[in-house]
Nucleic acid binder design. Structure first.
Length: 660
DNA sequence: TCGAGAAGCGAGGGC
DNA sequence: CGCTTCTCGA
C-alpha cells in the first residue's frame, strides 16, 4: 500500500472512499489529478474491473494525461497482474468524446448516421447565416453569432427547438421578444438542416446523449452496468445537460466521485452551472464531502494574493488554501506606457529568466484576457528571439487543413453539404455560386455542358476518395486526396512564405494521421475526424517545442508554470467590462478568472498594465485594474522595464503611481 | 466565374 | 487597425 503514503490525510480519505457519492472540493494545486488517479488505482486493486471505471474530463489533454498516469500506476504496481488491453482500460474521456462514443454505439436507435459529421462553430454559424438570409432577414440585424449563441445556451440547458418555441410563446417576454421569435424560427430550420446533412453540432453531442439515456431504459441500464464507478473532473464547469448525463449514469450504483472548485468556475457564459457543485450534497443523498486545501504548487506569497482576491467574492464555499512551501518572491508589477512597452517587458524579462537564471522556456507562461492581445506579444518575442508558442490558432482551423478534412468528411458522410460546399470549388475549378445553387436544388439539367463536365470531374474525385476510404489507411487516404484534388498545386505556384507554411502544414497533417493507421480500417478515419472535431486549444501545447506559452487565461485553466505573466491588467480589459453586462455575477466570474490566472504559478508572478492601449485603432487611457490594488502592498514589488525591483524608488510616489 | 481593390464593420472566453 | 464582404471589370 505504498501509494497511500504519498497522499495527505484528506487525499487518502478520498482514495479510500468506496461506495456512494463523493464530493471533493479541491483548491488549485491541491493534487486533484493525483487523487483521482490514485483512487482509480485503488479501486482496481480492490477488485473493480478497469473497464467498469469511467472518468470524464473537459479537455483531451487532461484525459490523455490521466489515462497515461493511471496506466503507469497500474504497470508499476507489482501486485497487480492485469492484462490491460485497449478494451479493458478504464474509460477516460472528455464529455464530448463520451457523447460521440455513446451516439455512435446507438446510431440506429437515434436514427442518425453512424458516421455523422461534427460541425464546428464556424460551420454552424455559416448555416445559421444562410437560414437568416433565406428567411429574407438581414444578417446584420440578426447576427448569426448572437442567434447561435442563444441556441447553444438553450441546448446546454436541455431545451430543444420545439420546447423553446413553446416556452417563448407562453411567456410574456419583454424587449427581446422579437429576437427570440426569430431565433425560434431559425433554430427549427437549423435542426432540419443538420438532420438532412447527417450532422451534429457540439451541443448535440451532449444533448442527444442525455436524451437517449433518459428516454431509453435498456440503453441506460447497459451503460449503468458498464460504468459502476464514475469520476468527473472540473465539476464546477458542467452544464445542465452534462449534469443529466452523469446523474443518469450514476443513478443505479451511486458511485459518483466529482472533483471541482467553485472558485474556478469560469465558463458560465457557455452554460456552466455553478449550482451543480454547490448543490451536490442535496442532489446526491448521503454524499461525503472532502476538502483539499493544502496547495503543493505555489509559494506562500502567491497563495496569499490568491486568497485575498477570491475572498472578495460573495457567492462561494468558504475554503482557505495553505501551503508548506516557502514564502517565495514578491509579486512583480510593471506599469508600461503602452502595449508595445508591455510586450517588450514581458519578452525581455523572459529572455533574462531563460539566459541568466537558466529557466526552461516552457516553464514560462504569458496570459491575457482576450486573444487580440497576443499579436503584439508575439511580435515582441520574435524581436527578442525568445522561443514561444501561441495557443489559440488551432492547427485544424487552418484553411488548408479544413479543406482537406472536408474531403475526408464527405468520404464518410456523403450527405454532408457543408463539406461539399467547401470542397466543390477548392481548389478553383470554375464552379461558382450559381452552379452550386442549381446542383443543390436539383436543377442540374439547366447547366451548360462545360459546367457539367466540371461537375463530373469533381464527382469523380469524390468517388475515388469514397472507394479508397474503404481500402486505404488514413494517412494514405489523405495523400490520395491531396493528389486527386490537386489542392497543393495552388500553393506550389508562387511559393510565398505563406504558401510554404501551408504546404508544411499539409505535410504535418499526413504525419499526424499516421498514428491512426494501425487501427482497423474505417475506425481509424472515424477517430481521426473525432480528434479534428474535438481538439482544443490546450491540446495544441507541444512540450517538445518548448517555447514560452502565450495564451488566454481561460486556456491556462488546469495548467501550471514556474513563472507567469498576467498582462493587460487594466480596468475594463481585465476585469473585462462588456456593454450591458455589468452584473455582480459577471464581476465575480472575472475575479475567479484572475484567481485561476494567479494560481497557475509555482514561483513568481508578474502583473503588467499599460497607461494607454490601442484597441480598434483608437487610443485609450486606462486606469489600473482593481485586481492589482486588491493585493496587499507588502506582497508586491515594483519593477522597471528590465524587471529589476524599484520598489524603494517608487514607494514615495506610490499613491500617484497607482492613480494616474 | 474570378480576382483585385474598396468599403465597411467589428473586436470575449471554447468544447 | 485588420478582417470580411461587396463590387466591378476582365
Amino acid at each position: 500500500m505504498s501509494y497511500l503514503s504519498e497522499l495527505n490525510s484528506e487525499q487518502k480519505k478520498a482514495v479510500l472512499h468506496k461506495k456512494g457519492p463523493l464530493l471533493i472540493l479541491a483548491g488549485a494545486g491541491a493534487g486533484k489529478t493525483r487523487t483521482i488517479t490514485y483512487r482509480i488505482l485503488h479501486l482496481i486493486k480492490g477488485g473493480v474491473a478497469p473497464e467498469n471505471i469511467l472518468a470524464v474530463t473537459f479537455t483531451n489533454k487532461t484525459a490523455k494525461e490521466m489515462r497515461e498516469r493511471v496506466l503507469e500506476l497500474i504497470n508499476q504496481d507489482k501486485t497487480l497482474n492485469l492484462p490491460i488491453s485497449f478494451y479493458t482500460q478504464p474509460f477516460i474521456k472528455t464529455f464530448h468524446s463520451l457523447g460521440v462514443h455513446i451516439l455512435r454505439e446507438n446510431f440506429r436507435e437515434l436514427k442518425i448516421l453512424k458516421n455523422f459529421s461534427i460541425l464546428d462553430k464556424n460551420d454552424s454559424q455559416k448555416i445559421i447565416k444562410e437560414i437568416i438570409t433565406s428567411l429574407e432577414l438581414d444578417p446584420k440585424q440578426f447576427e448569426p453569432k448572437k442567434i447561435l449563441g442563444i441556441i447553444s445556451r438553450q441546448k446546454g440547458k436541455f431545451v430543444t427547438a420545439s420546447s423553446f418555441t413553446d416556452k417563448i410563446s407562453n411567456s410574456s417576454q419583454q424587449g427581446n421578444e422579437y429576437l427570440l421569435k426569430i431565433t425560434a424560427r431559425v433554430w427549427g430550420k437549423y435542426e432540419d438542416t443538420l438532420e438532412k446533412e447527417g450532422s451534429l453540432d457540439f451541443d448535440d453531442l451532449l444533448l442527444k446523449t442525455a436524451s437517449l439515456l433518459q428516454n431509453n431504459k435498456e440503453i441506460l441500464k447497459k451503460y449503468q452496468n458498464q460504468w459502476q464507478q464514475i469520476h468527473v473532473d472540473e465539476y464546477q464547469d458542467t452544464n445542465k445537460v452534462q449534469y443529466k448525463i452523469i446523474q443518469l449514469l450514476s443513478k443505479k450504483h451511486q458511485n459518483l466521485c466529482v472533483v471541482g472548485d467553485a472558485d474556478q468556475n469560469i465558463y458560465s457564459w457557455r452554460g456552466a452551472n455553478i449550482q451543480n457543485i454547490l448543490n451536490f450534497e442535496k442532489d446526491f443523498k448521503n454524499a461525503e464531502t472532502i476538502l483539499l486545501e493544502e496547495n503543493y504548487r505555489s509559494t506562500q506569497n502567491i497563495l496569499k494574493a490568491a486568497n485575498q482576491i477570491i475572498q472578495k467574492n460573495l457567492e462561494r464555499q468558504e475554503k482557505n488554501l495553505f501551503t508548506k512551501n516557502s514564502k517565495g518572491e514578491k509579486i512583480g508589477t510593471y506599469l508600461a506606457y503602452n502595449e508595445g512597452d508591455e510586450a517588450n517587458f514581458v519578452a525581455q524579462k523572459s529572455k533574462n529568466l531563460i539566459e541568466d537564471e537558466k529557466v526552461s522556456p516552457k516553464e514560462i507562461a504569458v496570459l491575457y484576457r482576450t486573444n487580440f492581445q497576443s499579436r503584439i506579444l508575439e511580435e515582441a518575442f520574435l524581436n527578442a528571439s525568445v522561443p514561444y508558442q501561441v495557443l489559440g490558432t488551432k492547427f485544424f482551423d487552418r484553411k488548408e487543413i479544413k479543406d482537406i478534412i472536408a474531403y475526408l468528411k464527405i468520404a464518410l458522410n456523403p450527405k454532408d453539404l457543408t463539406s461539399l460546399k467547401r470542397t466543390i470549388n477548392t481548389p478553383a475549378r470554375g464552379i461558382g455560386k450559381v452552379t452550386l445553387i442549381k446542383i443543390t436544388t436539383g436543377k442540374e439539367d439547366e447547366l451548360s455542358p462545360t459546367v457539367k463536365t466540371k461537375i463530373q470531374n469533381y464527382r469523380n474525385i469524390l468517388n475515388k476518395i469514397l472507394e479508397n476510404s474503404k481500402k486505404l489507411k488514413p494517412s494514405e487516404l489523405i495523400k490520395l486526396i491531396i493528389s486527386e484534388s490537386k489542392i497543393t498545386e495552388q500553393y506550389k505556384l508562387k511559393g510565398t512564405e505563406d504558401d510554404l507554411e501551408k504546404l508544411s502544414n499539409i505535410k504535418e497533417l499526413v504525419s499526424l494521421a499516421i498514428k491512426y493507421d494501425k487501427l482497423p480500417l474505417g475506425e481509424g478515419l472515424e477517430k481521426l475526424l473525432e480528434e479534428v472535431a474535438l481538439s482544443s486549444d490546450q491540446d495544441e501545447i507541444d512540450d517538445n517545442i518548448g517555447g514560452v506559452k502565450l495564451m488566454t487565461v481561460h486556456s491556462a485553466k488546469g495548467l501550471e508554470f514556474d513563472y507567469v505573466f498576467i498582462t493587460g491588467l487594466e480596468d475594463g480589459l481585465f476585469p473585462s467590462k462588456m456593454m450591458g453586462e455589468n452584473s455582480i455575477s459577471k464581476e465575480e466570474e472575472e475575479r475567479r478568472l484572475f484567481y485561476v490566472a494567479i494560481t497557475r504559478a509555482r514561483k513568481k508572478i508578474f502583473l503588467s498594465y499599460t497607461s494607454t492601449r490601442t484597441i480598434f485603432g483608437s487610443r485609450r487611457t486606462n486606469i489600473v485594474s482593481e485586481f492589482v490594488t486588491d493585493i496587499d502592498e507588502n506582497l508586491i514589488e515594483y519593477t522597471d522595464s528590465l524587471g529589476d525591483n524599484i520598489s524603494q524608488d517608487i514607494s514615495d510616489e506610490k499613491i500617484e503611481y497607482l492613480e494616474w
